[in-house]
């Protein structure tokens, strides 16, 4: 068996494992979200389905699968059916560029080289931003095709919000790119090798905070969940979706949550690196998973603690605060890198 076939088999195994892991993780993250919501609000949260309510999501999935599937008569049916997948697939694709362990080097598995990344290519960060851009289409198409004024308003809001925050996000990411000297996620992680003070969160503190805030807006989570503001817009772009089509949107949202947590961990918190070099005997995927779960918790913490922005506040924050700040961050980073080297 030559190396190419072995790499192909590894690739299939990695992709399958990654998607199974993410799907399972998402089922439990939805449960965690509800449990944490209860925790933050002084309630107990789901308790009865499974041990401490752990199988709550599976009850929801059974129900959503068996719900009647309504497509409004006036809707653009093909686009209406397409929209959940436009939202769902890009979220998954970004997982391909996340390294979850060391890449390259000597053969380490059955005499073959096993890379702990699905796709090791030089424009990983561009793929991340591109997929974030495509997810906007999912939202806008859902809002447009439903032929409902609330859906349309919600879709437009979400679209405008995601586009305006993507700019700040992009500039924040360029700071990391300049520091690592590459757009390859693998190189970015390798650039952060060492103890936790060697990670990029310290030099890129401003960029990291901007990225975190912008990612909240990208995820459409509180305090930026105006697209689903129930007081104004019923359920935003999801108003006309029922049953499993709606479930796919929710699922995509939580897959996005996992992916964005993974990206924050990778860009700013050392990816699969252990916080201290003495802890390197614990494998990389474990560290990455721990970091992802911590980030997911922080996202939930923000969601259930902070309340929603008004739309004009959201827009002025995106364009007047985050965007100039991220450009300044990039300029300072570039100057320092040019001087220090």
């Amino acid at each position: 068996m030559n190396d190419a076939i072995a790499q192909l088999i590894f690739l299939i195994i990695k992709a399958a494992l990654m998607s199974i892991l993410v799907v399972t993780l998402v089922a439990f993250i939805i449960y965690f979200e509800r449990k944490f919501a209860g925790f933050f609000q002084g309630r107990v949260g789901p308790t009865y389905l499974g041990p401490a309510g752990a199988f709550q999501s599976f009850g929801d999935i059974f129900k959503l699968l068996s719900k009647e599937d309504i497509i409004p008569a006036e809707a653009d049916k093909r686009v209406f059916k397409l929209a959940p997948y436009v939202m769902f697939i890009p979220a998954f694709l970004v997982m391909a560029v996340l390294p979850f362990g060391p890449v390259g080097g000597t053969p380490n598995l059955f005499g073959y080289r096993f890379d702990y990344v699905i796709a090791n290519f030089d424009s990983g960060l561009v793929l991340l931003l591109a997929m974030g851009g495509i997810a906007v289409y999912g939202v806008v198409l859902a809002g447009w095709s439903s032929n409902n004024k609330f859906s349309l308003l919600g879709g437009l809001r979400a679209g405008a919000q995601m586009i305006s925050y993507e700019l700040a996000m992009g500039f924040a990411v360029v700071g990391v790119m300049v520091m690592a000297g590459s757009m390859n996620m693998v190189k970015i992680v390798e650039g952060q090798s060492g103890n936790f003070w060697d990670w990029y969160w310290a030099p890129q503190l401003v960029g990291g905070i901007i990225f975190f805030i912008a990612s909240l807006a990208e995820l459409n989570r509180t305090p930026f969940d105006l697209a689903e503001a129930e007081q104004e817009l019923v359920a935003g772009y999801l108003t006309e979706y029922s049953g499993m089509r709606w479930g796919l949107f929710m699922f995509a949202e939580y897959v996005n949550l996992v992916v964005v947590s993974g990206i924050v961990s990778t860009l700013y918190f050392g990816g699969w690196h252990a916080p201290f070099t003495v802890l390197d005997f614990i494998p990389g995927p474990v560290w990455l998973l721990i970091k992802i779960m911590i980030m997911v918790f922080i996202y939930m913490w923000v969601r259930w603690t902070i309340f929603r922005y008004r739309y004009n506040q959201l827009m002025s924050m995106g364009w007047k605060v985050l965007l100039p700040l991220s450009i300044a961050n990039l300029a300072v980073t570039a100057i320092v890198i040019a001087i220090v080297g």
């Binding site: 509800r34 919501a37 209860g38 309630r43 789901p46 309510g53 719900k67 129930e230 999801l238 006309e240």
Partner: peptide, 23 residues
Amino acid sequence: GGSRFDMSRFGMEAMRASPRQAD
């Protein structure tokens, strides 16, 4: 729905604003 009686124990706290997603 509040913390004293907490209907979320049986997974009912997700009160949907859109009838399309309600049961």
